[in-house]
Design a protein around this nucleic acid. Structure first.
Lengths: 253, 253
DNA sequence: CTAGCAAAAGTTGTCAGACAAGCAGATCAA
DNA sequence: TTGATCTGCTTGTCTGACAACTTTTGCTAG
């Protein structure tokens, strides 16, 4: 068994234990399929009770690192930790580039979603987009906070693709940037015209999607994402323009 | 407190309890910020011991649904469950459409990654792609299993984008389809020429990326993903072609 | 009556020991 | 050798207890 980094009592013993074991697995100290030490052994090695070890293993099971069979033991999963996607693990949160990297991923998915929404959206989808759009218009006029409506608008577009996996992903990534929308919608943002600009971009996206024009929708989304990135100080010089060819145009049935 | 669906003893009591509470949260029965019932209350209501309840809550903490403070209680998180992305939650695993939805998401991201890789790849990135490619060639010639090499090739492309978030996501989604690559690389797949076909598509992707041709790389990736989808019986008729305009072409510096 | 403080009650965190349920290897008989 | 049984080990669950901490209550001083 690997070395154990004994910690005094940082906050939660079970969290300390689970993080330590997680590290063993991620570092390859414990290969997939390998049986972990018994709960009794772990509790002795960590100097904690068996209940704490069980709570730690419970966490690891929830995160897909291990699976246990009564009477047999707990075993490292075949693809540990890869059944869920955590952005916190994907990037170095310290680096300023982290935000840019995540935003690029969002850019890729949202531009595609806008194009798909243009060809697949139902009237109900359009109604939801329009509703969020109106709330943003109101926020612009009244100089109030429109971050929630902003978020809802993007989610409505994702929903219109009819792809629940895509919807879930956009909702997930979008929430990561909830805070980043604030500089657009706070008092300073209104004064500097950032809210106005964002709203104009949104309107163009909506029009293209409503018209069923996938090419225009993608381009409008592209512009919006690039501008949104600029508003929070992200360099977009090396992003993929990902435009559409003319022959891609297709109207709704 | 909401109603409790008492279950006999399905497998793990703690899992039953955590899934039930998770459902309460997702269904909005327990709003963010709300304090959940005490452990004593929960154990009484569920008819289990406090240890089981604690293990269940431990799972929920790992998944970001709740946070607890000693002496105060456990509270529903502000954005429950939205700090990680789980495909199992995103789609109905029962439906046959689930695979198609996830594959479409993969299609969107991987075509973009190929285009980015063409303009950003280093010599080291290319070496890694070539290495995986050679292993696949060998697998085709010897009619052996090339699923691992196949996976590695796609991961190498993602790595070449220089975006760790993108890399992590592609690795994650790609692993979901690890099993789906088997029909291409098993004996039947070799006999039917599926391995040959896949290999030809891979070679074209590599050439385009090596040449620094983003447009060709995206198109080659697009074809590969569409064909791969067809090989496992997914309908791609309504996918976004997402091609490149001529003016997008840009050589490496 | 109010402000502030101290005690008490309640809640989560941890520990210890016990038994039930299930698994795996050793033992023994055919 | 093979098959069934048995025994020890491991995980799953329960109970009761105490420690650490928070919130509420109630009391006292002003």
């Amino acid at each position: 068994m690997p070395e154990i980094a004994r910690v005094a009592r940082p906050s939660q013993l079970s969290e300390t234990v689970s993080k330590t074991i997680e590290k063993w697995i991620l570092d390859g100290v414990m290969a997939p399929g390998v049986k972990l030490p018994t709960e009794k052994t772990l509790s002795a090695e960590f100097g904690v009770s068996r209940a704490v070890v069980r709570e730690a293993i419970s966490r690891l099971k929830a995160e897909g690192y291990v699976a246990s069979r009564q009477g047999a033991g707990a075993f490292v999963e075949a693809r540990p930790g890869q059944n869920s996607f955590r952005l916190a693990d994907a990037v170095d949160p310290a680096g300023p580039a982290a935000t840019a990297h995540i935003f690029e991923l969002r850019y890729i998915v949202e531009t595609a979603a806008a194009a798909l929404a243009a060809s697949r959206r139902s009237d109900q989808d359009l109604a939801q987009m329009r509703e969020a759009l109106l709330r943003m218009r109101h926020a612009v006029a009244e100089r109030t906070d429109g971050t929630q409506a902003d978020d809802d608008f993007h989610v409505a577009i994702a929903a219109a693709t009819g792809n629940p996996a895509l919807l879930r992903f956009i909702r997930f990534v979008g929430h990561q940037f909830f805070a980043s929308r604030v500089p657009t919608w706070n008092a300073e943002g209104h004064a500097a015209g950032r809210a106005d600009a964002a709203q104009a971009e949104h309107e163009r996206m909506f029009e293209a999607i409503a018209a069923g024009d996938g090419v225009a929708a993608r381009e409008a989304a592209r512009i919006h994402m690039v501008e949104a990135a600029r508003r929070i100080g992200i360099d977009t010089d090396h992003w993929d323009p990902a435009p559409q060819a003319p022959w891609e145009e297709e109207a709704l049935p």
